[in-house]
Simulated scan of single mutants.
Amino acid sequence: MKKSSLYKGCLEPILLRLLKDNGRMYGYQMTQMVKEITKGELNITEGALYPLLHKLEEQGVVETETEMNGNRMRKYYSLTKAGKKHTVNAMDEMKAFMQSLEFIVNPKPIVG
């Protein structure tokens, strides 16, 4: 199994956490930060990143702001008020999911 398939369902909470911790960010910046944090283990492709960001924008979770940077336009993403609440829920879900995986990966003997 490719590692990327394991990460796929975790991409939304990852992006939400980045935005929560860093305020506003542009797409390439997000991909590079995830790559750095995970020591190269997780590489987010544009094909996965931008459709998710657009979906989150449609849902009112993130908002965008466009700015000129040198001679090019750059689109920044940030959490909305609703997005901040959504992030708390997503982190709770992620923690519960990680605990469930821990039970599978390192099962404890049932004493009884």
Rank of each mutant, 00 (worst) to 15 (best):
S78R: 13
F103E: 12
G60W: 10
D92Y: 01
Y28T: 02
L56Y: 06
L49H: 04
G70E: 07
Y50I: 03
S78E: 04
N71G: 14
K3G: 00
N69S: 13
M73S: 12
T64S: 15
Q29R: 04
Y77T: 05
A48P: 02
K84Y: 08
A90T: 04
V88Q: 12
N43D: 15
V88R: 11
E46C: 02
T66H: 08
I110N: 07
Y7F: 09
I44G: 01
E46V: 05
T45E: 12
Y76F: 15
A96E: 12
Y26T: 00
G70F: 04
E41F: 02
E102V: 10
P13G: 03
K2D: 06
V62L: 08
A90K: 04
A96C: 09
V111A: 07
L56H: 10
K2V: 01
N71A: 14
F103G: 06
L11M: 06
T80D: 09
V105G: 00
D21F: 01
T38I: 04
M30F: 03
G47V: 10
L15P: 06
E58D: 15
Y7R: 10
V105L: 13
Y77G: 03
I104V: 14
Q29M: 00
L53P: 14
I37V: 11
E41A: 11
G60C: 10
M98H: 05
E63C: 03
M98W: 06
K75T: 15
S78Q: 13
Y26M: 03
V88T: 13
G9M: 00
M68P: 04
I44T: 03
E63W: 05
F97R: 14
E65S: 12
G112E: 15
K108T: 15
K81H: 09
E67W: 08
E93T: 06
Q99D: 15
R74F: 02
L79V: 02
Y50E: 02
K2G: 03
Y76V: 09
L19D: 02
P107C: 07
E57Q: 14
V88K: 13
S100P: 02
L56P: 07
T80P: 13
A48E: 08
E102P: 01
M25N: 03
F103Y: 12
R74M: 14
G23T: 05
L42Q: 14
F97H: 13
K2C: 01
L101Q: 10
T31V: 03
F103I: 08
K81Q: 10
Y50N: 12
Y76T: 08
E67F: 08
N22D: 05
M91D: 06
M98A: 13
P51R: 09
A48V: 01
S4R: 11
R74K: 15
M98E: 11
M94N: 12
V105W: 05
H54Q: 14
P51W: 06
D21I: 01
N43P: 14
E65K: 08
E93S: 11
V88N: 06
K2N: 07
Y77Q: 10
G112C: 15
V111G: 05
G60Y: 07
G83R: 07
K95I: 09
L56M: 15
T38S: 14
P107N: 06
E36W: 11
E63D: 11
D92Q: 02
T38P: 05
L11P: 00
K108V: 13
